[in-house]
Computed example of a mutant assay.
Amino acid sequence: MRTDEAVRVATLAGARVGMPVDDAQVLRVGENGVVLLSGVGVLVRVVPRAGAVQRVRLEIAVAEWLASQGVPVARPVRSEPIVVDQHVVSLWEYLPGGHSADLVTLARCLRLLHGVPRPVGLLTRVSPFSRLREQLASAVGLDERDRAFLREFRDGLAVQWDHATFALGEAVLHGDAHMENLLVTTAGRCAFIDLESVCVGPPEWDLTLSALYYECGWFSEHEYAMFADSYGYDVRCSPAWPVLRQIRMLRMTLWLAQSADNDTPRRQQLRHRLDSLRDGSAPAGWTGF
Rank of each mutant, 00 (worst) to 15 (best):
L43M: 13
V44T: 05
D22G: 15
R45G: 01
L37H: 03
V40I: 11
V17G: 05
A24R: 09
G30K: 08
T11L: 04
R8G: 11
V42H: 01
V35H: 01
A13C: 10
V40T: 09
L37G: 01
A15N: 12
R8W: 09
Q54N: 14
A15T: 14
M19N: 06
G33I: 02
V7Y: 04
A13R: 07
G51D: 12
G18S: 13
R49C: 05
D23T: 11
P20E: 11
G33W: 02
V56A: 05
L58W: 10
G18T: 06
G51M: 11
P20R: 14
D23L: 14
V56W: 01
L43Q: 03
A13F: 06
V35G: 01
A6F: 04
L12Y: 04
D23M: 13
A50T: 11
V17C: 11
D23I: 12
A52K: 05
S38A: 15
L37W: 03
V53G: 01
V21N: 05
S38R: 15
E31V: 11
A6Y: 04
G33C: 07
V53S: 03
V21W: 02
A24Q: 10
V26L: 11
G18W: 13
V7E: 10
V21F: 06
D22Y: 10
S38I: 01
V17K: 12
V46Q: 05
A50P: 02
G39F: 03
V40R: 04
R45A: 05
D22C: 07
P20T: 09
N32I: 04
V44W: 01
R55H: 13
G14N: 10
E31C: 03
A24I: 02
T11D: 02
T11S: 14
A24P: 06
V35L: 06
G41W: 10
M19G: 04
A50E: 13
G18L: 14
N32M: 07
A10R: 07
M19C: 13
L12K: 15
V56T: 08
V9A: 10
E5N: 11
R16K: 15
D23W: 12
L12D: 10
R57N: 05
E31N: 11
V44P: 00
R8M: 12
P20D: 10
A13G: 09
V47S: 07
E31G: 14
L37S: 02
A13E: 04
R55M: 15
S38N: 10
L36E: 00
V42A: 08
G14S: 13
A52V: 03
L27D: 05
E31Q: 12
G41D: 04
V7W: 05
V56P: 00
R45N: 07
N32A: 14
V34D: 00
D22K: 12
V53M: 07
